[in-house]
Computed example of a mutant assay.
Amino acid sequence: MITVLVSFNLAPGTTRVRALDMYRRSANKWAKNVDLIEKYYYFDEESLLGGGVYIWKSFEAAHRWHGPDYVAMVESVYGNPPLIQIFDTLIHIEPDTKRIVDF
């Protein structure tokens, strides 16, 4: 399992409502992606930082979906290029079931 953290600066004055609207526009595309396990969008109004946390099935998928086309899309939609960090996920914890899974 692979975790990708993507962050980008948002335009001055971007509100939570505006960020949510922009995020919803891409949500259906990601919901149909068979390589993606989960995705979370995040937003901080004070620092105007936005981004996403992606959980992928493989390094290959993570690199494929976060390549030059993705970078160009983020820059065109949000106004700034993203910072993309790709990590090998080592452990997953499920507090409800108290399950700990090593990868």
Rank of each mutant, 00 (worst) to 15 (best):
L49W: 03
F103D: 02
R99M: 12
V6G: 00
R24Q: 14
F43G: 08
L48D: 02
A27G: 08
S76Q: 09
E75Q: 15
L90G: 12
K32I: 04
Y42F: 14
T89V: 13
I93R: 04
I2P: 02
I37M: 10
T3Q: 03
L49K: 06
K98W: 09
I2D: 04
D96H: 14
W56R: 14
L5H: 05
D96W: 12
D102Y: 10
A61N: 08
P12N: 11
Y54R: 03
W56I: 01
E60A: 15
V71M: 01
A72F: 01
T3L: 03
I86A: 09
T14C: 13
V6D: 00
G50T: 03
N80K: 14
N80T: 09
V34F: 10
F59H: 14
K32P: 02
K98R: 10
K39A: 01
H92K: 15
V4N: 02
I37Y: 07
E60R: 12
K57F: 08
F43T: 01
V17F: 13
T15C: 09
T97H: 13
A11W: 01
L90N: 13
M1C: 02
R99I: 13
L36A: 02
V4L: 03
I2Q: 10
T97E: 14
D69A: 15
D88N: 15
V71D: 00
K39H: 08
P81I: 12
V34W: 04
